[in-house]
Simulated assay, not measured.
Amino acid sequence: MNRASLSTSSRTAAGIGYGMAAGAIWGLVFLAPALLHGFTPLELTTGRYTAYGAIALALLAPRWRAATDALGRREWLGLAGLGLVGNVVYFVLLSSAVQLGGIAITSLVVGFLPVTVTVIGSRDHGAVPLRRLLPSIVLCIAGAVCIGWQALLPSGHATGTRALLGLLCACGALAAWTWYAVSNSRWLARLHDVSAHDWSLLTGVVTGALALALVPFALLGDTACHASGDWLRFGGISAALALLASITGNALWNRMSRLLPLTLVGQMILFETLFALIYGFVWEHRPPTTLEALAFVLLVAGVITCVLAHGEAVDPIGAES
């Protein structure tokens, strides 16, 4: 193995490790709407991202000028778009989907992210041709179908209009995160003077400002009466999501995005789905069914075949900083 191949192999292995870690953290996000079912999706979103913005601003404050010197109007608008679509809109829709349809059906739809991102990424310069990714895509779809078949079986969680609305919200979350994953990877590929960690924190600052502006609407839209203990729980979970999912998870994801091509970045999203389902089983105190276990096998096989398709030297997008 020559030196170039070893370098590419090491970058791929490190990128996959970052992707798995981000997925393990992000899978926890699916539990939050179930833990805080008494609060509206907009309240959950404003709580999480206001905390995210505050933590990100505190971390960036000592070196704000250095972190923002390379940013112009275009970059700030890009951050606003990522924050609005990839964070605010996505989490409102995801929370609505979990509360209306359950964790399983939401995980199913979000499980299609590797397919949508991979198909879009296959058009990028230097990407692995789509025909080489077909086995992986087919396995991913088969796994998602298994989860969907199981999720749509009568379970008493959601029926009729409620289940349909949950499915539509999950589809909207899928569209939002597909756009975010593609756009964020391309921004990171263009920005050579901004570290992946700083880009994540800057996204947090902008998202926090957006969330703060939505707080009055969130409070006006909630007609329920919450005890002080409920608000303490809300604040604790919001802060935990901000620190773990938004700060740590996003930093890991951005580092991964600079090590892997976009077609492989799309496959890494599968780990979020897998961990979300595992956490869901623990929350529901039950083992996976036969269909769910089969889905696990198919989704993991999809990731492995995608990694093998990238076995030959492929130029990763951007450079780690």
Rank of each mutant, 00 (worst) to 15 (best):
A4T: 09
S7Y: 14
R11P: 09
T12N: 03
G17D: 11
G17T: 09
A22D: 02
A24C: 11
A24D: 11
I25L: 15
G27K: 08
G27E: 02
G27L: 02
V29I: 14
P33Y: 00
A34H: 07
L36F: 10
H37P: 09
G38V: 02
P41Y: 01
L42G: 15
T45Y: 09
T45F: 04
G47N: 06
R48Q: 09
T50A: 14
T50S: 15
W64L: 14
T68L: 07
D69Y: 02
A80S: 06
A80N: 03
G81A: 09
L84T: 13
G86A: 01
N87H: 08
F91Q: 13
A97V: 04
A97F: 05
V98D: 12
Q99V: 00
L100R: 08
G101K: 00
A104E: 07
I105T: 06
S107H: 09
V109F: 04
G111E: 04
G111L: 01
F112C: 12
V115I: 13
I120N: 04
S122L: 02
G126H: 02
A127R: 05
P129R: 05
L139C: 06
I141F: 10
I141N: 04
V145Y: 03
C146Q: 01
C146I: 04
Q150V: 12
L152H: 00
L152N: 07
L153D: 08
P154N: 04
S155W: 02
H157S: 13
T159K: 01
T159P: 06
L164A: 11
L165A: 15
L167S: 05
A170M: 03
C171E: 00
A175G: 02
T178N: 05
Y180E: 12
S183A: 13
R186D: 07
R190A: 05
R190Y: 03
D193Q: 04
A196I: 06
H197F: 13
D198G: 02
V205P: 08
T207R: 00
A209M: 07
A209N: 06
L210M: 15
A211K: 06
L214D: 12
F217D: 14
G221V: 06
G221I: 01
D222C: 05
T223N: 11
A224N: 09
S228I: 10
G235S: 14
G236S: 06
G236E: 00
A239C: 09
L243R: 03
L243P: 04
S246E: 10
G249Y: 01
G249M: 01
N250P: 14
A251V: 13
W253N: 14
N254M: 00
L260E: 04
I269C: 04
I269E: 10
L270R: 00
L274I: 12
L274P: 14
F275K: 00
A276G: 12
Y279E: 06
R286H: 15
T289F: 15
L291R: 00
E292V: 15
A293Y: 13
A293M: 13
A295E: 13
V297R: 03
V297E: 09
V303L: 10
T305D: 14
C306Q: 15
G311V: 07
V314F: 10
D315M: 14
P316E: 00
G318C: 08
